[in-house]
């Protein structure tokens, strides 16, 4: 066997245009107006953010969408080594799912179960980044 074997360096770049579908489109559209859109399953009543087009548990399409509060509970948080952002999982009030997003604030102060609220960016474009992150608002 050869002592050395070459490695060939390449980079794959493939631009995509992902079709968002009606549920996600509503969600992204809502963000422009500081609205957070949740889906509601007509059978089990489960409320999800980001909204779903189908309830996998009940196997049925979802037709009801409501807007929910930008406040919620921090379920977890972490920082990837070498990264400069803090990630959190947030359960928004009145919903049954969780939303992954940035959490701002001091790491030492954050606790699972603390209340957090969305911080909105100016000049919103209809992107998840229209929310800057979630900041702690006390217990």
């Amino acid at each position: 066997m050869a002592a050395e074997s070459w490695a060939v360096h390449q980079k794959i770049e493939i631009p995509f245009q992902y079709t968002a579908g009606p549920a996600v489109t509503r969600f992204l559209e809502g963000l422009k107006d500081k609205l957070i859109v949740a889906s509601v399953c007509s059978k089990c009543g489960r409320r999800s953010v980001p909204p779903l087009s189908f309830c996998g548990r009940c196997w049925r399409p979802i037709a009801e969408f409501i807007s929910v509060s930008g406040e919620g509970t921090l379920l977890s948080f972490t920082r990837r080594a070498g990264g400069d952002v803090l990630y959190g999982m947030i359960q928004l009030e009145g919903t049954d799912s969780s939303l992954a997003h940035y959490v701002t604030g001091e790491v030492g102060r954050l606790r699972i179960g603390c209340k957090v609220a969305a911080v909105w960016r100016a000049g919103r474009t209809g992107s998840i980044l229209d929310i800057e992150g979630f900041r702690e608002v006390g217990n």
Partner: peptide, 18 residues
Amino acid sequence: DPFCERPLGLNDAVAAGL
């Protein structure tokens, strides 16, 4: 998810930490 998650830079390591 490319709409609500990828712009945040989430990956397997972050999900594991969470």
